[in-house]
Write a protein that binds this DNA or RNA. Structure first.
Length: 154
DNA sequence: GCCAACGTTGGC
DNA sequence: GCCAACGTTGGC
C-alpha cells in the first residue's frame, strides 16, 4: 500500500465535486507531465491512500482523503480536439497519457500548505520541496500518519 | 500580477 | 546532444 498527494484545482474539480459524483469517483484527467503520469502508470495500486489537495486557489492545502480506485487507463481527453488537454501526437493505438480513477472518501478541514510546512516531521515531504511542480507526489507512511492523525476530527 | 523553478521544444 | 528560449506551475 502506497500513499500519494494529488493536486486538483478546485475550479476544475474540488473535493466536493468529487464527493458529488456517482460512487464519489472521478477520472483524474489532464495530467501532462511524464513523471506524474509514470506514478499513475507504474506505481499506483487500487486502494492506495490519496491526500486530496486544492491548488491554484485562495486557500491551497489538503482538503480530503481519497483512494486510488482503478488501474491506469488512457486519458480520453488526449484524443478530444475540443479538450484543453488534447494532444495531437497521441493516437488511440498509441496513447501517451494515462490516468486512474480516484474515489473521494471524505472531506477534511483544510490543512493549509503553511501548516504542512510548519510540521518538522513533514520537512521532507515531496510536495513541499523547493521548486516542486509535480501535481502528483508520493507520501511516506510516516507522513500519511502524521497528517491523517492530526487532522481535526469532523 | 509577480516571479522562481523547472520541463519542453527546436535550431544547430 | 547542447542549450537558449519559451511555456507552465503555483504560491504569494
Amino acid at each position: 500500500m502506497n500513499y500519494w498527494l494529488m493536486k486538483s484545482e478546485p475550479v476544475e474539480c474540488s473535493i466536493d465535486d468529487a464527493l458529488a459524483m456517482p460512487a464519489a469517483t472521478v477520472p483524474w484527467t489532464g495530467v501532462r507531465n511524464y513523471q506524474a503520469r509514470n506514478f499513475m502508470r507504474d506505481a499506483m495500486r487500487v486502494g492506495d491512500g490519496v491526500l486530496f489537495y486544492h491548488s491554484s486557489c485562495a486557500e491551497p492545502g489538503i482538503v480530503g482523503i481519497a483512494e486510488v480506485a482503478s488501474a491506469p487507463y488512457p486519458d480520453p481527453t488526449q484524443f478530444d480536439p475540443a479538450s484543453h488537454y488534447y494532444d495531437a501526437a497521441a493516437k488511440p493505438d498509441a496513447p501517451r497519457w494515462v490516468l486512474v480513477d480516484v474515489r473521494a472518501i471524505r472531506r477534511t478541514p483544510l490543512v493549509p500548505i503553511a501548516q504542512l510546512r510548519a510540521q518538522p516531521e513533514l520537512a521532507e515531504m515531496a510536495v513541499l520541496r523547493r521548486g516542486n511542480r509535480l501535481s502528483i507526489t508520493p507520501v511516506t507512511a510516516a507522513e500519511w500518519a502524521v497528517i491523517t492523525t492530526r487532522l481535526p476530527a469532523r
